[in-house]
Amino acid sequence: MGNFIMNHYYEITAVILFGIGFISLLLHSNLIKKIVGLNIMDTAIYLFLASRGFIHGRVAPLLIGTTVPEDGVYINPIPAGLVLTGIVVSVSVTAFSLALTQRLYKKYHTLNLDEILLLAKKEVSK
């Protein structure tokens, strides 16, 4: 078991972080904390991808000089590409949710989602 943890500590950390982010996105009532949770969750996935995509002793697939090295020297570049794409997606989603949060704060003067829901319900019943 100890050996397993030592060999897979990146993945284990990633899954724990994912859980932390998921729970804060789901359960926190503060909107900013929710968005922070979202970012932790996404970052955990990038950690997972990056750690799975790296192999000790190999290098990035860049051609230096003119000699083409034999197989088994390069790392597959796709996981890094996925991480980049994922970062772009999470930046845009974060921006969108922050904009929404700002609108809500201007309207209700609180960041607590439970309070906002109550206020909105009152507004509708009026």
Binding site: L25, I45, G86, L113
Partner: peptide, 28 residues
């Protein structure tokens, strides 16, 4: 309106939870 913005943020949060799970699934 206030009502739709509140509805949107709830929708957004649930959607993000869903897509986070989906992305984790794909990564694994």
């Amino acid at each position: 309106s206030g009502e739709t913005i509140v509805a949107t943020i709830r929708y957004l949060i649930m959607s993000l939870l869903g897509s986070g799970l989906f992305l984790m699934g794909i990564s694994m």
